[in-house]
C-alpha cells in the first residue's frame, strides 16, 4: 500500500470582496479553484515531486496533505487513514506526528524570539516527550554544531537556518516530510549542500518526501516520480527520465524548452506564448488550450483525464 494516497483532491478559495462591496458593485462571489480533481500516490521511501509555475496549486496540495488546510472535496489518506474523516484521536495523533514540513523562507519559518534548542525540540515538547539533548544531537546530524543550540535564529545564514528547519522536522521522527520549495531562497552552492543533506537523511531515516518546487533541475535531481501541475490540475506524471527525455504533455514540453540551459549559449528558442490564465475564470475544457499548439475543438469543451502513455500518466487528448 502506498504511504500517501490522494484522491480527487479539490480546493476552492472564496476570494470575493466583502458582501457590502459585492452588493454595491453587483458582482457575484468570486471562487478560485486552486486545486482541481488531483489524484496521485506516494510510495514509501520515495521522493514524489510536484512541479508547476505560480498558481499551479502545488503549495496548496502540500498544505492539505499536512492538514494545514482542509480539502474542499476529495481525500488525503495516509496509511489508509483520512485525517479529515477520522474520529479516533489516537490515530490522528499518530498520523500527525508522522508528517512534518519544511518551508520555503528560512527567515520566516523560525520564530525569531526562540532559541534554536526550543525551536527544534518543540514538536516533541508539544507532545510531552523527552527533549534532553535532542536538539544538540539533531544539530550535529544536519551539519551544525551542538553549541548552536543556545543561539537565536538571526545568528545564522539562510542555508544554516534551513538546516535548523530540517532538524526541527526530524525531531518527531516522521515518516513523511513535505518540502515546500526548500532551496529556492538559497544560493546555488548552499542549495547543493542542503539537497545533499536531504538525500542523506532520507536514506538514513527511511523518509518519504513530497518535494514541491518550480525548479525543474532540482526536481530532476531529487525525484523518483514527478507530477506536473498546471492551473491546479495534474497534467502529467512520470519518472524523471521519461519526463525529461520524452515529455508527453504539450505544457511539459513548453516548460522544459523554456528552462534556461547551462550549455544553452546564445540559444534562440521561440519563447512560450501567452501567460497562465486567471484561475477564477479558467478556460473551459483543457486549461492549457489557449496556449497549446495542438489545441483542437475537443480541447475547448472536454477536460482530458489522465491516461497511460508510455510509462507516464498524461492528461491530454492528443498525447502519445
Amino acid at each position: 500500500m502506498a504511504l500517501v494516497s490522494i484522491r480527487n483532491l479539490t480546493r476552492i478559495f472564496d476570494v470575493s470582496k466583502p458582501w457590502l462591496n459585492r452588493l454595491i458593485e453587483r458582482k457575484p462571489k468570486a471562487l478560485l479553484t486552486a486545486v482541481s480533481d488531483v489524484s496521485f500516490e506516494i510510495e514509501e521511501r520515495t521522493v514524489y515531486a510536484l512541479v508547476g509555475e505560480s498558481g499551479s496549486g502545488k503549495s496548496t496540495i502540500g498544505k492539505m496533505l499536512v492538514g494545514l488546510l482542509p480539502p474542499s472535496e476529495g481525500h488525503v489518506e495516509i496509511r489508509g487513514i483520512d485525517l479529515a474523516q477520522e474520529t479516533d484521536a489516537d490515530k490522528i495523533e499518530s498520523i500527525r506526528s508522522d508528517i512534518q514540513m519544511i518551508f520555503q523562507d528560512p527567515y520566516a519559518s523560525l520564530n525569531p524570539r526562540w532559541r534554536v534548542r526550543d525551536i527544534i525540540a518543540e514538536p516533541v515538547a508539544a507532545r510531552g516527550g523527552k527533549t534532553e539533548g535532542l536538539a544538540e544531537r539533531l544539530l550535529e546530524q544536519v551539519g551544525l554544531s551542538a553549541r548552536d543550540a543556545g543561539k537565536f535564529p538571526h545568528e545564522f545564514s539562510g542555508g544554516q537556518r534551513q538546516r535548523i528547519c530540517i532538524a526541527r522536522a526530524l525531531a518527531s521522527e516522521p515518516k513523511l516530510i513535505v518540502c515546500d520549495e526548500p532551496t529556492s531562497a538559497l544560493d546555488v552552492s548552499v542549495q547543493a549542500q542542503v539537497l545533499n543533506l536531504m538525500s542523506d537523511l532520507k536514506d538514513e531515516f527511511g523518509l518519504t518526501y513530497l518535494f514541491i518546487s518550480h525548479d525543474l533541475t532540482v526536481v530532476q535531481h531529487m525525484a523518483d516520480r514527478i507530477g506536473v501541475l498546471y492551473l491546479g490540475r495534474l497534467v502529467e506524471e512520470a519518472d524523471p527520465d521519461t519526463l525529461f527525455d520524452h515529455p508527453a504533455h504539450p505544457y511539459t514540453q513548453m516548460l522544459l524548452a523554456a528552462a534556461p540551459k547551462l550549455d544553452g549559449f546564445g540559444r534562440e528558442v521561440p519563447p512560450p506564448q501567452g501567460e497562465i490564465p486567471d484561475p477564477i475564470n479558467p478556460p473551459p475544457g483543457c486549461a492549457f488550450n489557449p496556449r497549446c499548439p495542438l489545441a483542437a475543438e475537443r480541447c475547448r469543451t472536454e477536460r482530458p483525464t489522465l491516461r497511460d502513455v508510455r510509462g507516464a500518466r498524461v492528461a491530454c487528448h492528443f498525447a502519445g
Binding site: 546555488v188 542549495q191 539537497l195 545533499n196 538525500s199 533541475t217 530532476q220 540551459k261
Partner: peptide, 15 residues
C-alpha cells in the same frame, strides 16, 4: 554544484 551538472549522480558536487 548546479543540479544539471550532476545529472545521473546521487549527490551534487558541493563547495
Amino acid at each position: 554544484s548546479t543540479p544539471l551538472a550532476s545529472r545521473g549522480k546521487d549527490r551534487l558536487h558541493q563547495i
